[in-house]
Design a protein around this nucleic acid. Structure first.
Length: 588
RNA sequence: GAUUCCGUAGCUCAGCUGGAUAGAGCAACUGCCUUCUAAGCAGUAGGUCACGCGUUCGAAUCGCGUCGGGAUCACCA
């Protein structure tokens, strides 16, 4: 039983005895004592004054005396205003450390089968900074839910269908001269992306020419010959034209190969991939069913809509007047498909907050269609990554490419590592592996330490630091613990101790929080909670390291206890970082 | 305009289910490597928690309003 529940039930009993009142556990306000006061845990007695009918001080004293008498763990207490500070005996902390088990996953009696969707790119351009946050976040949340004892399926939906990919296709047909990623030595997604940009540039020129001739801006968009060609290609694709479909498959496969490479660098993976091209027809079918059921309605031009004005939203288009699918159509089909494939209890959609409205509508549509699984759907809405100049804009060339970013990080980390010069024992393959882990660790931690809901700033100029509240700092603290363990490998590390220092006690408390932190992170879908916990633990260990001798402790028992403590800190950090998708290194 | 998210140190962020004197990192300045990895530690300085009102014994935290910023409100995805 945790010390918190021991104290809570003792407090409840004390209130019962002293004031003859039965309270619930929630009415006992137990919190950890602020460092500037003596004690470990504090009960706030202000809420109890109405029952005690005494001053805060008297109430706290009565309660403190009763709790101390009833529990072996409480060694002493003091009262400051309405705060009852309870000191827990060192024996208790030593015992709880010896019994600590921070292994994962947690036992969960209410385990669920959950699907986490993330990444979900378009197949017409390479991944960028926005995808970086998305991927790290989605992957970490999947790990968190799994660590909390759930079954998790990682997935994405690939937007492989639509006018955007036709644009790249047409550009390649027109200007490609049959070149391929292999022939140009280019990464497939960058290769295809180049043609998409080429298309857009020429398309823009055509629009400007038309506008110069007096055509309205709106008409110019659709009347430009290139747009006509791309639309034509889309119609051919929808009609199943063999050549078009073949080219579509080829170009998409180039993109997938490129993506795969980037995902590998990200250190993320997927259990199941859905393609829009395979789900949009089901979406259309469901819309037709809904139309027949009267959930949706059709306008004179035969477009299909849902009226959500009663829910405080607008009317929303579900099917175009020409019967073709829009963005939400495939999402409806995909959700139903997923549910059928896996009978999941829930789907977590990792998608930026610019799509908050979209998901509100999507969930309502599914609810109104009578799919009971709509209750398990959750939009993990996260803030955009902004540059010092504001949002990334393709047109202004401010898009930060994911592959470039990672290369730069690795270069910077390599330089920093070289300057430290601590890897002389490693060969060059091992060295570059360490550098890679530090680089990715820095980037991931940077992205994940911020509350997902908040938009964040990324400054490429200043790049990412390796000091302070960073991934590499945590990796570094782990490295220290590993260094100790290497030096004592094979030794008998038994110990018996009866006293611990204040910093040792703090570390015991902190490592003991790990499972609760994981649960909290799972509840809030927030990797930031794990990241901040790891940082606090690492910082406390670092302070401990600075003013305690470990291997050189005179007393063998103290020495071995400190080694055990170091191991627990290291293992806990490694587990926390693993959840974030950050790998540890043995030396740095 | 409507809806929604946000506003904490010069900068980037914690803290937010109400609790004691609001915390870190970066940047600046001081110290600390002959001793277990200094990517570190210790310290100095830096705050009207956007503003106002309310609820409360108690508000950065909850409610209302004002100001400021982002996002969304497409037969785009």
């Amino acid at each position: 039983m945790s010390i918190e529940s021991i104290l809570t039930s003792a407090a409840l009993q004390a209130v019962q005895n002293l004031y003859n009142t039965a309270l619930t556990a929630q009415q006992i306000q137990l919190q950890s004592t602020k460092p500037e006061f003596e004690g470990d845990l504090t009960i706030v007695v202000f809420p109890l004054l109405k029952i005690s009918k005494k001053t805060p001080e008297e109430t706290a004293k009565d309660l403190g005396a009763a709790i101390q008498a009833a529990t072996a763990e409480v060694s002493t207490f003091n009262v400051v205003k309405g705060f009852l500070n309870l000191s827990i005996s060192e024996e208790y902390w030593i015992k709880s450390f010896s019994e600590l088990n921070n292994s994962l996953p947690l036992q969960n009696d209410h385990a669920k089968k959950l699907m986490v969707e993330y990444s979900s790119p378009n197949t017409n351009k390479p991944l960028h900074l926005g995808h970086v946050r998305n991927n790290f976040l989605g992957y970490a949340v999947a790990n968190i839910l799994e660590a909390a004892g759930n079954k998790v399926i990682k997935t994405q939906i690939i937007n492989d269908r639509g006018i955007h990919i036709c644009k790249s296709m047409y550009a390649w047909m027109t200007w490609g001269n049959g070149e391929t990623p292999a022939s140009t030595q280019e990464k497939g997604d960058h290769f295809v992306g180049r043609y998409y940009v080429l298309f857009e540039q020429n398309y823009k020129k055509e629009q400007q020419a038309l506008i110069a001739q007096g055509v309205s801006e709106k008409d110019a968009k659709t009347k430009a010959p290139l747009f006509q060609e791309a639309s034509n290609l889309l119609r051919q694709w929808e009609a199943g034209d063999q050549q078009t479909v073949a080219l579509w498959k080829t170009m998409n496969s180039w993109v997938y190969e490129g993506f795969e490479e980037t995902y590998k660098k990200f250190g993320v993976d997927f259990d199941k991939i859905y393609f829009e091209s395979q789900t949009y027809l089901l979406g259309k079918k469901i819309i037709e069913e809904g139309l027949a059921k009267g959930v949706f309605y059709q306008r004179e031009d035969s477009s299909v809509w849902i009226d959500l004005t009663a829910e405080g939203l607008d009317e929303k288009l579900l099917l175009r007047s020409d019967g073709t699918a829009v963005y939400i159509t495939q999402d409806i089909g995909t959700a139903v498909d997923r549910y059928k494939d896996f009978q999941v209890d829930g789907i977590i959609y990792t998608v930026a907050n610019e799509q908050d409205y979209h998901f509100k509508v999507l969930f309502l549509v599914l609810q109104k269609m009578g799919y009971s699984f709509w209750e398990g759907l959750f939009h993990l809405s996260y803030g955009m990554v902004e540059l010092p100049t504001g949002r990334m804009k393709t047109r202004e060339g401010t898009v930060v490419d994911a592959d470039d970013l990672i290369e730069e990080m690795i270069a910077t980390a390599g330089q920093a590592t070289e300057e430290k010069g601590k890897l002389s024992e490693l060969n060059s393959t091992e060295k570059s592996e360490v550098v890679r882990k530090i680089a990715i660790g820095a980037l991931k931690y940077f992205m994940l330490k911020v509350d997902p809901k908040k938009s964040m700033l990324f400054n490429p100029e200043e790049s990412i630091d390796f000091n302070g509240n960073t991934g590499p700092f945590i990796q570094y603290i782990y490295v220290r613990t590993r260094s100790l363990l290497r030096k004592t490998a094979g030794e008998d590390l038994h110990y018996t101790i009866s006293e611990i220092s204040a910093k040792e006690k703090e570390l015991i408390k902190k490592t003991g929080d790990f499972h609760n932190v994981v649960l909290e992170a799972a509840k809030l879908y927030s990797p930031a909670i794990i990241a901040n916990y790891c940082y606090e633990l690492a910082r406390e260990y670092s302070a401990f390291w600075a003013d305690h001798q470990i291997l050189k402790s005179e007393d063998q028992n103290v020495r071995n206890f400190r080694i055990a403590l170091s191991k627990t800190v290291g293992d806990t950090l490694a587990q926390g970082m693993k959840i974030l998708g950050i790998e540890m290194v043995e030396r740095m």
